[in-house]
Amino acid sequence: MSEKDTETVVHRLSTIRERLDAGMDRREFVRTLASAGYAVGMAQLLGVDDFLETDDGDVPVVTALARDRTDDPFSLEKRTRTVPAEWYAAVEKAFEVNEILASSRVMGYLGSAVVPGDYRSGTASVTIGVTGDSGFIGDLIGTVSDSLGLEIERFEDEEFETFEEFRDGADRSIRQPRLARDAANGTAPGGVTCETDSTMATLGPAMYDPESGSSFFVTAEHAFDDEATVVGEALTLPTETEESFDLGTVRFDHPIADIVAVEPSGRLDPINRIDTSPPSTITGQYTRWGLADLLARGEPLEKVGAMTGHTTGEIQGIDAVTCFTDNFCRHGQIRWGSEMDLIDGDSGSVSYHPDPEDPEESVLVAGFNNARTWWPGQSYVWGVSAYRVNESLGYHF
């Protein structure tokens, strides 16, 4: 963002606030936000949630999309719970600020994430990673909100190696991959090894496209050779019986989300199950507010990777933006666990949490695990959230 663009953003926000102070009525205020390109949630960002008459007490939020019928993956229904209104306003404010940062393209911006506080605190914060002189970020946040928690982490350019250098020097300690036991039942669960022509990754559970009614195998896009497109590339399933099965070929390639949708060849079918002991059945996925709720309650995420197996870790940030790799930013990311929770071969696995309606046997997916931190000062696994995949690509679990 240029200095002129920065001044424009600050001026627009300041002008709205000034007009409100001058006696703008509620209806005009909402129209002004819309015409300026802001969501109604900007009311909390400007510190005027009382102006919109936010009720005291609790407000309902949609926390998950889950199956109404276990045998029908397309019978998703919204699940809701009530959360404290003060906490909701704080988290909504953080989402709005994070969106402004992500769209600003300010020089030195490396990424940011929303960190909801617990329900009792009624707070939320935004963590921001920057390089060089990016002092304007603090000025911008100070302009639009004096109450939002803000944590800025500064990095020097020389602290970073490239992703290719990190990958080439990554720990490849000898581990036994988790192979599918067999494929006699005609299905392939998530959490086991799958192979491309160049490497191995972790097979995710079945991913569904409601528009076509199709089900797909899914894994990490970066497991394939760097090509303009990997559509048509094959994915196979090695097993403990030393027999390999053709899972299918890539039908849709999504490099920004870092996933591929693999159309089944007909030999094996995708299944909504993760290879745990006992097996975990997937009944749906968490929304953005569902992830915020988990973090507020201190609930961890889990994953089963083909190399590291089952691990558990705390959520460190949601709705995250990651600009550490490539020439674009990845939005809607989850940060959780630590660097130790993911090594080569685990990419493509999903993070999940027990389904509160059937915690012993069922889970809800939080998102994919695509990479881990390799820069100093931070330690977490990151990948695209299931809600982001649903909103931007249409797929669900």
Results as ranks from 00 to 15, higher is better:
Phe216Ala: 03
Ala234Gln: 09
Glu153Lys: 14
Val144Tyr: 06
Ala183Asp: 06
Pro210Gly: 10
Ala170Gln: 09
Gly204Lys: 01
Asp182Ile: 07
Thr199Leu: 11
Leu203Cys: 08
Met200Gln: 02
Gly232Phe: 07
Asp157Arg: 12
Gly117Arg: 03
Leu179Met: 14
Glu240Trp: 06
Thr229Leu: 09
Thr162Pro: 10
Ala184Asp: 13
Pro116Arg: 01
Leu179Ala: 08
Asp246Tyr: 11
Met207Asp: 01
Thr229Tyr: 08
Gly191Lys: 05
Ser244His: 01
Phe217Pro: 03
Gly132His: 08
Pro205Val: 01
Thr187Met: 06
Cys194Lys: 07
Thr131Cys: 05
Ser215Lys: 10
Leu247Gln: 03
Ile141Leu: 12
Arg181Ala: 13
Ala234Cys: 01
Glu211Met: 12
Leu150Lys: 13
Val231Tyr: 00
Val126Ala: 05
Thr241Ala: 15
Ser147Asn: 09
Asp139Arg: 15
Thr131Asp: 04
Phe163Trp: 10
Gly138Arg: 02
Ala201Trp: 02
Glu151His: 06
Glu227Asn: 14
Asp182Pro: 08
Gly190Trp: 05
Ser215Ala: 15
Ser121Glu: 13
Val115Tyr: 02
Glu159Ser: 09
Asp133Val: 13
Glu221Lys: 13
Asp209Pro: 07
Asp226Ser: 14
Glu158Phe: 15
Glu161Gln: 14
Ala220Arg: 04
Met207Thr: 11
Ile137His: 00
Gly232Arg: 12
Ser212Trp: 04
Val115Ala: 02
Gly132Ile: 09
Ser134Cys: 13
Asp197Pro: 05
Thr123Phe: 00
Glu165Ser: 15
Leu237Phe: 01
Glu243Gly: 05
Gly122Met: 03
Leu179Trp: 10
Gly213Ala: 11
Pro177Asn: 09
Glu242Arg: 13
Gly204Cys: 05
Thr229Asn: 09
Phe216Ser: 06
Asp226Glu: 15
Ser215Trp: 10
Thr199Pro: 05
Ser112Phe: 06
Thr131Phe: 02
Ala228Trp: 02
Asp182Tyr: 12
Asp118Lys: 06
Leu237Cys: 08
Val218Ser: 13
Ala206Ser: 08
Phe155Met: 02
Glu156Ile: 07
Asp246Asn: 15
Ala124Tyr: 05
Tyr119Glu: 04
Ala180Asp: 04
Phe136Arg: 13
Glu161Val: 15
Glu153Tyr: 04
Gly248Gln: 03
Val192Pro: 08
Asp171Asn: 12
Ala228Glu: 11
Ala183Cys: 06
Ala183Ser: 11
Thr162Ser: 15
Thr143Asp: 12
Gly248Asp: 03
Thr229Asp: 11
Cys194Met: 08
Glu243His: 08
Gly232Glu: 09
Ser173Leu: 12
Ile141Val: 15
Thr123Gly: 03
